[in-house]
Deep mutational scan, measured.
Amino acid sequence: EFTQISGYVNAFGSQRGSVLTVKVENDEGWTLVEEDFDRADYGSDPEFVAEVSSYLKRNGGIKDLTKVL
């Protein structure tokens, strides 16, 4: 089950073990991109978060400006 990723309007994530599946949706709710990120592939949590965040930004993730990150 996908849940909204904090700080984004149209990005959602689903966690299974160490694998986080993220997706970005358009205004109609269609999935634009979907990608798996395995936490085990990264040396640290900040590196993992930075990679996921960068992916979302590159692929149309819209920041939720009503929330302070």
Rank of each mutant, 00 (worst) to 15 (best):
T3V: 12
R39P: 02
G7P: 07
S54R: 12
Q15E: 06
V49Y: 14
S53G: 08
G13I: 12
T3S: 11
S6R: 11
I5K: 05
V52Q: 00
V68C: 15
S6N: 13
Y42H: 02
D64L: 07
K63F: 14
V33T: 09
K67N: 15
F12E: 02
L56E: 01
A40K: 13
I62V: 08
L20N: 00
Q15W: 15
V19D: 00
V33S: 12
F12I: 04
V49K: 10
D27I: 10
Q15D: 03
R58E: 09
V9C: 13
L20Q: 00
R58F: 08
D38A: 02
S53Q: 12
N10P: 00
A50T: 08
A40F: 08
A40H: 09
P46Q: 14
R16W: 07
L56S: 00
G60L: 04
E51L: 07
F48P: 00
E51D: 11
S6A: 12
S18L: 05
V24Q: 00
Q15G: 07
V9G: 04
S18K: 04
E47A: 07
T31R: 04
E51H: 12
D27M: 11
I62N: 04
V19Y: 01
D45C: 15
R58A: 13
N59R: 05
E35A: 14
D38R: 03
E34A: 10
E28C: 14
D27W: 08
G60I: 02
K57G: 09
W30Q: 14
G43V: 08
G13P: 02
A11L: 02
S44I: 01
V22F: 02
S54L: 11
E1G: 14
R58D: 10
S53A: 12
P46N: 15
V49T: 10
Q4T: 08
N59W: 14
D64R: 04
V49H: 13
E47T: 03
T31Y: 05
S18H: 06
K67G: 15
N10D: 01
G60R: 01
V22G: 00
V52L: 10
Y8P: 06
E47Y: 02
V68K: 08
E34F: 10
S53F: 11
G17T: 02
D36F: 09
L20Y: 09
K57F: 10
N59F: 09
E47P: 02
S44P: 02
G7S: 04
L32R: 04
Q15Y: 15
S14P: 02
F48S: 00
F2W: 14
V24Y: 01
T21F: 05
L69S: 15
I5L: 10
T66H: 12
D64H: 06
A11P: 01
Y42N: 00
T66C: 15
E28P: 05
V52I: 12
Y8W: 14
E47G: 02
N59C: 13
L69V: 14
G13A: 13
S6I: 10
K57D: 15
K67S: 13
E1Y: 10
V19R: 04
F12M: 05
I62S: 04
S18Y: 04
G13S: 12
V24W: 03
W30N: 11
G43T: 09
S54P: 00
L32C: 10
Q4G: 07
L69A: 13
L32F: 08
E25I: 15
V33K: 08
V68P: 15
R58G: 07
T31L: 10
E25A: 12
I62D: 03
V33I: 09
L69K: 07
G61C: 15
G17M: 03
N59H: 13
E28Y: 11
E34K: 11
L32H: 06
L20P: 00
K63W: 11
R16F: 08
T21M: 04
F48H: 00
K67W: 15
E28W: 12
F37I: 03
V9A: 06
E1K: 12
G13H: 08
N10H: 07
G43H: 11
F37D: 01
T3I: 11
V52W: 09
I5F: 07
S14H: 08
N26R: 06
S44G: 06
S54V: 07
R16E: 03
T3Q: 11
T31C: 10
V24H: 00
A50L: 09
D41I: 06
